[in-house]
Computed example of a mutant assay.
Amino acid sequence: MPELIIQAREAAVSAHLSVKRILPFRRKRMVGPFIFMDHAGPMGSFPSELTSMDVLPHPHIGLSTITYLFSGNVTHRDSLGVEQIIRPGEVNWMTAGKGISHSERFEDPDLLQKGGLEMLQTWVALPKSVEENDPTFENYKPDQLPIYTDKGIWMRLIAGNAYGLKNDVAVHSPLFYLHLKLEAGAKIDLPTEHSERAIYIASGNLELLGRTYSNGQMIVFSKSEEATVLAKTNAEFMILGGEPLGERFIWWNFVSSSKERIEQAKNDWQTGKIILPPNDDKEFIPLPKSRSNPASSDVPPPEPLS
């Protein structure tokens, strides 16, 4: 049987944008290096003022954010001066290292008329050796992300390696991250290249080891477990994992192998040492009021986390 089943919890990341939060979870902080996962949407209706969905400039340290869309688009701006619209099938990979700030804005009025919005954001913790590297940002286009198809099976490799697929997305530790679609009745075996693995179901129903799971659930597998994924309905899901990095601390948008480093990051944000995006510097999210160990339970850490 799977090691653990995680049921997504609702969290708000801006005034009119709520998400399903999967990681971190009290009983499972990380899957390989993945320490955070949010699923926004699908959204087919929007507030009259799209700006009420915006996630204002906020800081990160010690992690890479991976933003991936099923539909819609989002404008990313960061303190490196990058401005990048991300569209479905692309990957925005931002490595915070010693410190970066960024915003996520919903500026396309077409979101109100067509396509809707559905996106996932995951965070990957960094190995200790690169936690203090300079921040970087890369956008990868769909033609850089290999796709595999078979009868009733479609998959795209977002990062890492699995099922014999590889791409040039720059990662800092062994991991894999896949987007899959299965037609009802199709099957696929769980990849075995990495020691920690999980499936997150975005839509539909999957059967594994004789039990059916549905959208909003993450199924975490033990190291040696083999399993075949059977689609009971048409289903869309993510498979992710990799090799563990060791203990990491998480507070608000900060991840580190050191509690002291997180305290420094708090001060850096309050004192302006982590600068704002130069093309989005008129507003920002202030440091939340401290509370003891905000990631110590299933209650989400102070918002927003994005």
Rank of each mutant, 00 (worst) to 15 (best):
G204M: 11
R156W: 00
N139T: 14
H76M: 06
S48A: 14
L240E: 01
G216T: 03
N279G: 02
T122H: 07
E10I: 13
K128L: 09
L165V: 07
S292T: 11
T67N: 13
G99D: 05
P286F: 01
G81W: 05
G242W: 01
M53Y: 05
E196P: 02
L180Q: 07
E236P: 06
A231N: 07
S256Y: 02
K259I: 04
E226C: 12
E303T: 12
L17P: 13
I201A: 07
N161K: 13
M119L: 15
S18P: 00
H172L: 09
W251F: 10
A235G: 04
N133F: 15
S203W: 01
L112D: 09
P42C: 03
H179G: 04
K166L: 12
Y148A: 12
P277E: 01
T212H: 03
W123C: 00
G99N: 02
L209W: 00
I86Q: 06
E104M: 08
Q217G: 09
L111K: 04
K128Q: 13
P57G: 01
L4W: 09
L56I: 07
A159T: 07
P127M: 09
W252F: 10
P88H: 09
G160R: 01
S195G: 03
S257M: 05
L69Q: 02
S297Q: 09
D268Q: 07
T65I: 03
I22N: 07
K289D: 06
S306K: 01
G204W: 12
R261P: 00
S290L: 14
S257C: 05
G272K: 14
V74E: 06
S258P: 00
R105Q: 15
P304S: 06
W154P: 00
Q121K: 10
G216Q: 09
I147T: 14
M37V: 13
F249V: 05
V171P: 14
K151G: 11
A295C: 12
S214V: 01
E263I: 11
N267T: 13
R197K: 14
D150G: 13
P135M: 02
G204D: 06
I22E: 09
I239V: 15
V13N: 07
A295L: 05
E104C: 02
H194W: 11
F25W: 14
A184S: 15
F25S: 12
T271L: 10
F221I: 09
G272M: 11
L209P: 03
P294H: 06
V74M: 13
E3W: 03
S258D: 14
G160A: 05
I66W: 14
V74K: 00
A227R: 12
E104N: 04
P135A: 11
P302D: 02
S173T: 15
